[in-house]
Amino acid sequence: MPDYPSLPVVSDALIGGLLSAAVAWLLLATLWRMIQWALTPSPLPIVLAPAPRTRAGVLGRLLLELFVFRSLARASMITWLASLAFHYGLLLVLVVHLRFLIVPLPLWLLLFVRVSTWAASFLVLGLAVLLIRRVLIDRLRYISTPSDYLHLLLLLGIALSGAGLKYLWPVDLFATSQFLRGALSFNWQPLPDNAGLWLHLALVILLLLIFPVSKLLHGFGILFSPTFNQRDPNR
């Protein structure tokens, strides 16, 4: 046998390497964006009153905005419910994906796996409502740019291709796990031969690439929003 990598090995490493690079980009670019925000001076206190007078109060305000979307709840009940369904559905689905990283499967994770169908349904339903209202309401149509629709379609594509892997095109879970763990530890393994999986992975890589340079970063922006994260100027 010749002492050089054969073609499949190169392409396996290529796809695994692409995922590794995308994850590294996601982490570094997101960190860079946050450093940029943190380094920009904040000359005047512009907190939205009534404002908390203690640090604990500020923390509470940020947690409410981050995890309950409190301001959105004031604005529009439908958008709020759809956003909650989408974000928490996505969070649960991501937790379920830990099954590919933690071997053997821990008992607590099994609980999440058992509700994964519900989680995926909330995810898709939430995204669908957000997309429909963006198309139907004239004010939303007016302010939407192509990227606003494409972000939703990309997330829907990821969710639906993922659901396809679960229900239509069964994938080799062990091999997928090996591929993923390999990509995250720079020990690249071949991607199982499943067109659905290839599609799912391609869309996820695209998402990881655009996340730090798009509005998808808004969750981190909330932490840096001076109207939220400052105390009353005369606390």
Partner: peptide, 24 residues
């Protein structure tokens, strides 16, 4: 200005065009 005012920069960066403000 975006280098001098954090609020301005974060506000320009993080809008998702969710529409919550459109009727306010």
């Amino acid at each position: 200005l975006v280098k001098q005012r954090r609020g301005l920069r974060v506000f320009l960066d993080t809008c998702t065009r969710c529409g919550a403000c459109t009727d306010k």
